[in-house]
């Protein structure tokens, strides 16, 4: 399992500052949420995405996933190409009836050699439905992500969730950890981690704030001092990835 820092913990941090925060806190990888100051989004050019992946690799940090809010963007052929250039799967939250969108996206991801991860809350019935989509798609095109909220019903039975997912879970986002760890006693985090260990889970586990009001605490925990980096940098130049819309 690779412990991962979500950019949701530091949405105003540049890409390089996220990498530095990962190194300081011993994270193996970073989860990038589109729209944050790291600048990686579907509108970024492939060269810039490849360069970002190389910078991360040089820092010894993996890119665990690119998380998108807009499910419809996965049928844009640029999205799977971007994922391939980053060397990371795309994660989208599955809400509502998006079967046709996912069906259309799967061959695009397969063709690009990338993976689309369908994020769910861990409800076993929902996982059963998503497994059907995954297993009907080209091999490797689709997978599962699990968004875990400490204290919810799914985290109480983690082994049941893992069993239902049948090895398709590749990425987990845990809302909490980091500076929130002390306040999450009795909410099932220990059971989750034990179940992941015993099941041999080898995917990524990204930590993200459980609530935006904890962002200040996360910033301090990650080493933010006035600005990111050494402390002398202001927030004005935080977007470091060149934004460029590719021709289709």
């Amino acid at each position: 399992m690779r412990l991962t820092l979500s950019s949701a913990a530091a949405p105003d941090a540049s890409f390089d500052d996220l990498l530095a925060a990962c190194t300081r806190r011993g994270f193996a990888a970073v989860e990038l949420e589109a729209g944050h100051a790291h600048g990686v989004s579907p509108s970024v050019g492939l060269e810039a995405a490849s360069a970002a992946a190389e910078r991360a690799a040089r820092a010894g940090i993996g890119i665990a996933a690119l998380r998108l809010d807009d499910v419809a963007s996965v049928t844009d052929p640029r999205t799977p190409r971007l994922a391939a250039a980053l060397g990371a799967p795309v994660v989208v939250r599955i809400d509502g009836d998006v079967a046709s969108t996912v069906r259309a996206a799967a061959p695009l991801f397969a063709e690009a050699g990338a993976t689309l991860l369908l994020a769910c809350s861990g409800d076993v019935d929902e996982i059963g439905r998503l497994r059907g989509w995954i297993e009907a798609a080209p091999t490797g095109a689709l997978g599962l992500a699990w968004d875990v909220t400490p204290g919810d019903s799914q985290i109480r039975v983690p082994a049941a969730v893992l069993e239902a997912a049948a090895g398709h879970i590749r990425h987990i986002r845990l809302h909490g950890g980091g500076p929130e760890t002390m306040g999450q006693e009795g909410l099932g985090v220990g059971r989750l981690m034990s179940a992941l260990a015993l099941s041999g889970y080898t995917g990524t586990l990204a930590l993200a704030p459980s609530d935006p009001r904890f962002r200040y605490a996360w910033g301090a925990w990650l080493g933010r001092r006035g600005g990111w980096g050494c402390g002398s940098k202001t927030g004005s130049d935080t977007v470091v990835i060149e934004s460029r819309v590719e021709e289709r």
Binding site: L3, E185, G190, L198, G200, Y201, T202
Partner: peptide, 26 residues
């Protein structure tokens, strides 16, 4: 449980008072 896998228990995210019980349970 299943064999031939690398089992990794990362306790960095576990609340302090639950760490040792979780490790022993595992």
């Amino acid at each position: 449980v299943s064999e031939n896998t690398t089992r990794e228990l990362d306790v960095r995210v576990i609340p302090p008072r639950e760490k040792h019980p979780t490790i022993f349970q595992t």
